[in-house]
Amino acid sequence: MERIPILRMGDVLLVSIQVDMHDRLAQTLQEELAERVVKDRARGVLIDISVLEIVDSFIGRLLGRIASISRILDAETVIVGMQPAVSITLVELGISLDGVRTALNVERGMELLASSISLRTQE
């Protein structure tokens, strides 16, 4: 069965979605990611969707759900590399992904996570 790999880099879990997301795959990703956040004690989750060309309302909402789940488990989510067409679609669908941080690319996303993690560690 197709799976989306979850990589660990220090405190951050890195997910790069390289295939077309279908509902089952997305559901599996949500479950696995929740487990990994707990198991690896991750403080941040970075989801790269730069090659994703089609996002429907289900996937859009699921991204928001993943972020909420991670937040409860004390990990911040950053979604990076969203394509213009995808972002227009999501806005038109009325999915604003409140509470999810976004960045232009993986590099920026990592910077964002690093600064927010260090901030939270200080507290």
Binding site: V91, S96, A103, R108
Partner: peptide, 12 residues
């Protein structure tokens, strides 16, 4: 506002 929301989703 739609334009701004879309740009925000992309990380800008």
């Amino acid at each position: 506002m739609k334009t701004i929301a879309a740009a925000h989703l992309m990380g800008a």
